[in-house]
C-alpha cells in the first residue's frame, strides 16, 4: 500500500514536470455535440503540435462564457470562437487578435426552423406569423443561435423575444435546438446553417417534421483568436507560426469535420458588425 502510494506520488510529479514543458492549450465554444467536438479538436491538436513543434492540447468547456473566461485567464491561449464570443474575448484581453476564419464564416447565415405543426410556410421575407408561438434560441452566448436571430426578431416584430413569443428557451447548442424543434418541444428555433447542413448530411433530420422557414442576411462568424502575449512563452513570431499552420490546414478530413472549405486570414475589424449588433440589442455594454 505504502509503496503504491509513493509510486503514484512520484508518477504525479513526473507528469507535473512534463506538463511544465509549456503546453500550448486551446479551447472551442461548445456549439454542438460534445463527442463530435472532442474528436475534431483532438485531431486539430495533433496537427498543430506537429506544425508548431510544441505540445498542443485541447480542453473542452461546458459553456460559451467558460471558453471566454479560460481565454481571458490565460488558461488557454488560442480559441475557436463564434462572432460574439470572439468580440467579447478580444475586448477583455488586450492585444489579442482574430487570425483566421473559415471560408464560410465571411458570410454566415442563421436558419429559422419550424415544426410542421406550427404551420409556418417558408418565405423570402421575415415570417411575422411566428409571433405568439414557442421559440428556442441556441446558447445564450451564441452569435448564430442568439445574437443575430434576436436582432432580426426585434427589428421585424418591434419587441423583445419574451414579449413576442408565448415561450422562449435556450437549448444550449445547435444540435439540441434541432432536436427540440423536431420533437415539437418548441415550434420555432434558430440554428447555425452549418450545423443544420451537417446534421442533414448525417441523416439526423426528419424533413417531414422540421424545415427551414427563413434565412437571415449574412454576417461574419467563427474565427480563431490568439492572445497577444504568446510570444513571451513560445518565442517571437509564434502568432505568425500559428496563423500559418491554421491557414495551411489542407487535410480534407480535418476541414470536413468543422465543416469548412478552407481557412482564410481574419482581422479584429472583420467583426465590427457583430459588435455593433451586440450593442444594439443590449447584450454587450
Amino acid at each position: 500500500m505504502l509503496r503504491k502510494l509513493i509510486f503514484t506520488t512520484a508518477m504525479c510529479f513526473v507528469s507535473l514536470s512534463l506538463a511544465h514543458a509549456e503546453t500550448f492549450v486551446f479551447t472551442a465554444i461548445p456549439d454542438e455535440d460534445a463527442s463530435r467536438l472532442r474528436e475534431r479538436f483532438d485531431k486539430v491538436a495533433v496537427y498543430l503540435s506537429k506544425q508548431l513543434a510544441v505540445d498542443v492540447r485541447y480542453v473542452p468547456v461546458k459553456s460559451y462564457s467558460a471558453a471566454v473566461s479560460a481565454f481571458r485567464n490565460n488558461q488557454v491561449q488560442l480559441a475557436w470562437f463564434g462572432g460574439l464570443s470572439g468580440v467579447r474575448a478580444r475586448s477583455l484581453v488586450e492585444g489579442s487578435q482574430a487570425i483566421a476564419q473559415g471560408w464560410e464564416d465571411q458570410s454566415f447565415v442563421t436558419y429559422f426552423i419550424a415544426h410542421v405543426s406550427a404551420g409556418v410556410k417558408a418565405s423570402k421575407s421575415f415570417p411575422k406569423s411566428i409571433a405568439g408561438k414557442t421559440f428556442t434560441f441556441g446558447s445564450k452566448g451564441s452569435t448564430s443561435g442568439r445574437l443575430m436571430p434576436e436582432f432580426y426578431i426585434r427589428e421585424n416584430l418591434k419587441a423583445a423575444p419574451n414579449k413576442v413569443f408565448s415561450r422562449v428557451g435556450f437549448s444550449g447548442d445547435h444540435s439540441r435546438t434541432i432536436a427540440l424543434v423536431q420533437s415539437g418541444a418548441y415550434q420555432i428555433g434558430a440554428v447555425n446553417f452549418s450545423v443544420w447542413d451537417n446534421e442533414m448530411k448525417a441523416g439526423h433530420i426528419d424533413k417531414a417534421k422540421v424545415s427551414i422557414i427563413w434565412k437571415t442576411p449574412t454576417y461574419p462568424d467563427y474565427q480563431w483568436t490568439i492572445r497577444g502575449d504568446v510570444a513571451k512563452k513560445w518565442g517571437a513570431g509564434f502568432t505568425g507560426k500559428v496563423t500559418k499552420a491554421l491557414l495551411g490546414m489542407k487535410d480534407p478530413d480535418l476541414l470536413a469535420s468543422f465543416p469548412r472549405k478552407s481557412f482564410i486570414p481574419a482581422s479584429n475589424s472583420d467583426y465590427d458588425p457583430i459588435r455593433r449588433t451586440g450593442l444594439a440589442i443590449g447584450i454587450l455594454d
Binding site: D33, A34, S35, V61, K62, S63, A66, G172, D173, S175, R176
Partner: peptide, 17 residues
C-alpha cells in the same frame, strides 16, 4: 455540469446526446 471534471460532466454530455 458547469465544467469540473467529475461524473456530472460526462452525465451531461451523455444526456444531451
Amino acid at each position: 455540469f458547469v465544467g469540473l471534471p467529475t461524473l456530472g460532466f460526462h452525465l451531461e454530455t451523455a444526456f444531451k446526446q
